[in-house]
Nucleic acid binder design. Structure first.
Lengths: 191, 191, 191, 191
DNA sequence: AATGAATGAGGATTCATTCAT
DNA sequence: GATGAATGAATCCTCATTCAT
């Protein structure tokens, strides 16, 4: 049964299974056994490749963030103007993939973990630094106080996400996108 | 050991202990035993009064929300103008009590729980409905689109809270308050 | 609330509640609390009057046996002949009251308890001695080996009871009565 | 510690330990931990293989019934005549193995469990159906009412077993065997 | 590489029992 | 007499983790 070159396949399967399992449960109260079963491997293998439960979840969160990063990069690539870049960043933040229940569950539990896990905190820091950098880059030509505006936009994005994510039967993305962009326009106009 | 009239005392002690314990741990991975010990009672008593671990946490969160509710009410009572009411709501949302580590831990875990626990979701819904109602009331005379503005302000509040709560060595409150009110002013001005 | 002369009432209520509770559960895995609640008293009172859970069950079993004893006595009182006395004993053993689910549950658990509880064993011994005595008295004029016949009849009664008691959707009583009396007649005839 | 091919060994050890533990206690009030310790394994393994306490007891009872089944089959194999088959069935029912305290404890608790556990009830049904079938087969040539006679013999067997099992310092087997066969002869003779 | 048998600590929960009132 | 608050031991079960194969 052991095959060569299976490692990347196994790792990917376990990461996907972890995300799915946390999504199904809503919390980190999932067992390594259930994750392994979903991935079609033994529980021992999960430890073999990831070391432990926390590492598994961190890898899963890193995977989600990497996916998000890719989406942002693609969106920015197609943006022509400064304003278009801001649009792209907001739209990517509220992409359908971000509102999948399993992604929501991952994010919320990620926030919990970030309080105490330095590694989770680090991941979160990277996500925020990237977003801030992207926002700053696009905002600088448009406003005299890009720092404050970037922080405000970041808060709007996180806040709308949190609200839509936990809104029963929410439309989610479109509403959040519209409100954020409207607020952005208002704030730019007021300068 | 049994004494009459102790019920409110025990309940309060258990609720406080639950908040403290969750704050110390950062997550809901706390034992009823440790909560009970902190409250100075037996683990059995926690079940006697609250039924189970979830009920205990829900009671703790309800306690936090009630405290917040009181703070908002007091702040509003002292507000003179419409604009002053908005100020009060924002300031109350970023009051020092909200940024105590144990309050932060409670909120973050509350969000996680709200995904799957109808009772937690209900509690969250009440908090949001109250905030929205308060914001709408103050915004209506100041803007032509109070609904959207209330939602945006709510998102700003939640977003800034989330960001400051998980910001290493953050000042928290003052920064969040200032940014939120500045954004509010910009948006009102742009109307 | 304390009233004088309530003791017999409370005791009776607790005994009845114990029988009902064991009947509902099928086993001795019932709580003193649930028994007390059913009896409309506090759990403390159950201990006050009976001392403990086992004592409560023993009292309940004694109550059942006493009721059975009364039924037997009444039945014998109306019996005219020797053969009629045997009939009466068999019929009383299979009376509807004996096949109430709660009575069945009590008996089966009583057997379990009799293995290790001297007091339960003693109660069982009394029941058997009485039955044996009654059977012997009625059988002596009818057979040359009354001892063996009494033992056989006793076994038939216990065996049929056990079988009907645990027979899904059993008629219970009539079948057991008929078979026992038929066997008795056959055996007497063969002498 | 993990070894391959140990499953049957572990299962057997756990089943034996369950029977022994219940026998020592007299009731089902035994802990999975004590059973596991007696079997020389961890408590977790008991759950791993059997799922839970009830399943463990059911497996133990099934084991006892299987052993009895084997004894009956062997006994029947050596029986030459119809009457000999009846003898064999009765003797097997009162074999020394049936009167071991642990077997008695298992049977009595099995009866209790059969009231509420469909699986226990099913097991009991199978035991009875087999006995009935065996008795009918042997009785048909000897009597005009084999059904009734089988039921009566079954009751005699169960009844004598119950009586001897709970008879202080009983001889058990021989007495029960003799009385049952005597009654059988009487009944056959009376035809 | 991969398995899954095996461990054993840990925790929620239940409950008989006690005792202050 | 009567209550029920309070205890805390007891137990089932879960699960991360290890490791022989």
């Amino acid at each position: 049964m052991p095959k060569v070159g299976m490692e990347p396949v196994r790792r990917a399967a376990l990461v996907e299974a972890t995300i799915a399992e946390i999504g199904a449960e809503g919390s980190l109260d999932v067992t390594v056994g259930s994750i392994a079963k979903r991935a079609g491997v033994s529980s021992g293998l999960a430890h073999h490749y990831f070391g432990g439960k926390d590492d598994l979840f961190l890898a899963a969160m890193a995977h989600i963030l990497a996916g998000f990063h890719d989406e942002v990069r693609d969106a920015l690539r197609n943006a022509e103007t400064r304003r278009g870049r801001l649009d792209a960043l907001v739209r990517a933040s509220f992409a359908p993939s971000c509102f999948k229940p399993q992604t929501i569950a991952a994010w919320l539990n990620f926030y919990v973990m970030a309080q105490t896990s330095p590694r989770a905190e680090h991941l979160l820091h990277i996500y925020r630094a990237r977003l801030r950098s992207n926002l700053l880059h696009a905002l600088r030509p448009l406003t005299g106080k890009p720092e404050a505006m970037a922080e405000t936009l970041g808060a709007l994005i996180d806040g709308h996400y949190l609200r839509q994510a936990l809104r029963a039967g929410a439309m989610g993305a479109p509403e959040a996108t519209r409100l954020t962009l409207d607020a952005l326009d208002d704030m730019l106009e007021a300068q």
